[in-house]
Amino acid sequence: MSEEHNPEQGNRILEVSLGATTAEGGTRERVYTVGGAGTFPFLGAGPAAGHPPRIALEICDDTRTWSPIVLREVGDLAGDTGAWAAAAETTFGADMVRLFFTSTRQRGFDDFASLGTTMEEVIGATKYPLIVEGSTEPGIDSEVYRRIGEAAEGERILLGTAEADRYRSVAASALAYGHALVAQTPIDINLAKQLNILLHETGLPPERIVIDPYTGTLGYGFEYSYSVMERIRSVALQGDADLARPMISSAIDSLNVKEVREADPETADEVAIRWEFYAAFSALVAGAEIVCVRHPGTVALLREALPALQEGSHPQEEAYGDESA
């Protein structure tokens, strides 16, 4: 069988590095580079295959809005953000932790000092690169992102999330404290480009931006998420540098959908895992370089499936030969 077709030889997704080792001013034991592919996902061989995708487990500092299914599964860990983060890497086998500062989303939040403390705790408890999500309220963004950014200075975390109408604090934090950021633009690829341009104007270099085109989870608009990722990858490979960025995908509302919420308690875990898995796996096939899930069981399922997709796609491994031609 002939190897895949690649009419746009040469155009590559920009590489973004996450995490910093001691030598680089951080404390991580690993550094991940994402991106780099020159083909649609899992089709390339050799350098064109790009770097392997990464699986992140999402955790939070205030569990009030978190899925009860996940809370039941992780038990006491939910009360100890540091331990939860550590377990994500060791017990659950995630490539990285994505910490949501959900506390900042409570009305009237003003305990800014706690952000720095929790951030330091999670940094201390983990060894791999981190993704961190701050507030979504413009009124407190400035304070929140400064605290998080400062506490994680030098670690080159992936900080989220910048949107077209509120990107300044996230960008400022990334610039001031040496982090990368997530830029979110729903549905429209032109909006994604627009936000990239705005971020560029703040002086943030392109190799510190990961884009998030997510719009809806499985059954709830997932087709838009899927196609916009395919489109972004497709125009990126045609040479549109603004969109040749790694993508992150997190079907954050997966566990809130009716099908999962109303599942029989006996099978709730299975339903939750499947709902997350089908969305995350499809995102990988559409071009996401980082997929994020919340149920530890989903991480295990993705871990199992990935090697079967990416044979030879790891550039560090021996280049994968033309399989049958």
Binding site: S142, Y145, R146, R168, A171, A172, L175, A176, Y177, T202
Partner: peptide, 12 residues
């Protein structure tokens, strides 16, 4: 200075 730079980018 880093905080100051932050506030400049941030717009505050």
């Amino acid at each position: 200075l880093r905080r100051l730079g932050y506030s400049l980018v941030d717009g505050s």
